[in-house]
């Protein structure tokens, strides 16, 4: 009987997108961050950033809070518990996949 192949984990498609992964990782290191800081750190356009943040918000990984600061709208983002768990699972799956590929 041949040895069965180890089961490789699936990568979360919501997090796997490069910009979404960068956003999740940036937000994991802070309590809250606003849109302009995330744009500055990722170097992405407003449209693309807004769309990717919306996807993370829809998945329940990120929570957005809108408010007015000096009469200007400001949106701040934070990672939810679900998001932190998803990122940790993604990293674990990534490591397992890389281990599997090396083996």
């Amino acid at each position: 009987m041949g040895r069965s192949m180890p089961e490789l984990p699936e990568l979360d498609p919501v997090i796997h997108g490069k910009l979404r992964l960068a956003l999740m990782s940036l937000l994991a290191g802070v309590e809250t961050a606003d849109f302009s800081w995330l744009r500055e750190k990722t170097g992405s356009t407003d449209g693309n950033l807004g769309a990717q943040l919306m996807k993370l918000e829809e998945a329940g990984y990120v929570h957005a809070k809108k408010r007015f600061v000096e009469r200007k709208p400001q949106t701040t983002y934070r990672v939810t518990e679900k998001g932190r768990k998803a990122l940790a699972e993604y990293v674990a799956a990534l490591r397992k996949l890389l281990g599997g590929m090396i083996d």
Binding site: L21, A22, S25, L26, A28, G29, L87
Partner: peptide
């Protein structure tokens, strides 16, 4: 996949 792991580490430390 390695590049993604590096991206995660870099972004987390950048945020912190």
């Amino acid at each position: 996949l390695n590049a993604r792991l590096q991206l995660i580490e870099e972004m987390i430390s950048e945020g912190r």
